[in-house]
Design a protein around this nucleic acid. Sequence first.
DNA 1: CTGAAAGCGCTTACAG
DNA 2: CTGAAAGCGCTTACAG
Lengths: 340, 340
Amino acid sequence: MMENKSPTIADVAQQAEVSTATVSRCLNQPDKVKPEVRERISKAIKDLDYVPSGAARALASRRTYTIGAVVPTIDNAIFSETIQHLQSGLTQANYTLLLANSGYSLDEELREVRSLLSRGIDGIVLVGEMHRPEVFAAIEQQKIPYVNLWTYNPDSQYSCIGFDHIKAGNHLAEHLIDLNHKEFGIISGFQEDNDRALLRYRGIRQSLERAGLNIPESRIIQCRYSVEQANISLHQLLDKHPEITAVVCGNDVLAIGALSAARERNISVPEQLSITGFDNMEIIPFLSPALTTVNAPSRRMGSHAAEYILKQIENKSLDVERLELNAELIIRDTTGQAQK
Amino acid sequence: MMENKSPTIADVAQQAEVSTATVSRCLNQPDKVKPEVRERISKAIKDLDYVPSGAARALASRRTYTIGAVVPTIDNAIFSETIQHLQSGLTQANYTLLLANSGYSLDEELREVRSLLSRGIDGIVLVGEMHRPEVFAAIEQQKIPYVNLWTYNPDSQYSCIGFDHIKAGNHLAEHLIDLNHKEFGIISGFQEDNDRALLRYRGIRQSLERAGLNIPESRIIQCRYSVEQANISLHQLLDKHPEITAVVCGNDVLAIGALSAARERNISVPEQLSITGFDNMEIIPFLSPALTTVNAPSRRMGSHAAEYILKQIENKSLDVERLELNAELIIRDTTGQAQK
DNA sequence: CTGAAAGCGCTTACAG
DNA sequence: CTGAAAGCGCTTACAG
């Protein structure tokens, strides 16, 4: 524990024989400082290894150059893609991303939002449209730009960038109905705190009902988004309902688990059983069999979010914008004509 | 744009009829405040919707309750697992993780480290042992705890938590040698800024040489860690070297790409070609064929890192600790006896 | 157990 | 283009 402290802006000012105000300007608006002076300051900064204090800067300027995001989990490739692109958009503009995750719990999300807000952020992005009312209240009090990702609702009073999950569910179900499937099973993520999961599910039921098909409760399993859980779930489903010919999975991770269970039972896909995923993760097209799934525009949601937030900050505005992206059905090798 | 500002600690103090010092104490060391007073303050905080300013707190206390981490990418499930566990360990202690990524570039890593340091962090974790010298210099100046993850070197002068990549490479190669393979190919990640990739590679070569086997440059391809790149790479490798019977891949992602290419060529795995991965991502055991790979203790590295950093902060110490974790070979279905 | 006051290291009108 | 000085919202010895 040595005693030499980190240099401050005052040390730099002294060394460069200017005021702290000028050093500050040199850092933030270099063109307002005479080139000659600028050089002296730059040299002093280098000599002293000066690193500005973010805390002091944030306190004085009331800006943190930090954007907060709360996602359900980063442990799913699909959110990683969104985050990676969000981050790279922000980094380019010299902003940093402060990332938190809620573990798919709305209460935990609220806690994380509060923590981010307290820490100080200039903008915030969340996933989904459903949040605790306190989340909205807390964010609005701060008057910072805010956007919901992975959701599109034309009637939302908040900005959103995403796609229509009901429509996506419709497409998936219609594809299977076209293939003559009548006996469906569903392996969904937990829907309680997850509006995306819920809406996809509704979309599927909606289409089935339109086709005069019903799907009893016992053929619907909700589980954690893990390969292993889905594997177990498909076994349970088929133990009780061997008549099922098509299983709609809440995302690709679940579908991979379902595929592995089908393999364990020596059930051929898609001949005896059709399976669908959701998201279109990078590896999906390289697996065998390649999944029929819905392509979620995960990267574009991240880039657009960065763009939106930065624009609002720059304009000091809080415009509500709603951007609908496409999420098309991608038909590959795990869906086929229903047997018998 | 309304004019009402966010409440400050002074507002709370006034409302509760105490000094700001007492409010501060109530927030940070509640037991030092009389319960009755504490209640008044809590009420005032609720009534006013008071959120403390992280910036002011950090500036005054010289602590940010934030830990920084720079990883190569979050867009790889294996780092996500490390981060997830690091984060959850920190969150439990009321610390926040500030996450940056370097895109596997050491220069970018340096930039990110500087940015984190400037922003203010109480500890930092990096991946690998190889960093720009300025990284070490900048961190040491701040006198904050620091640990290298995903690496273990008993002679390192810095703390590290990880495993021995050379040894892991040895195991992989020895397994294939035992299966009588003599014609090897390697698909590695770029080794220039990645000591883990380099060391694994060295471990493989080392074992091959011990067995009297050599592997010409033309059978070694370095590429980005993407399924698609690995797919292309295996095609290239086999076009030039149809004699190859075993391909060692730098990680599971690459191995999945290689598997897909083998499938496209109608080469059966492992009968005609053995393929190995590295990491043992969650989905691997559920794929078909399931990969032979090395289990990287990704989650444990994250948890241990959180534990180490928090302990150093608590003790106000900067002890160097080196923790070696196990990375065992997991033999599954993609490796078999060499043909002919 | 509580309060007065200095100080953390910046930024930013304001004046020149 | 530059400087003096107030102020950002907390924490923390110090005194009582």
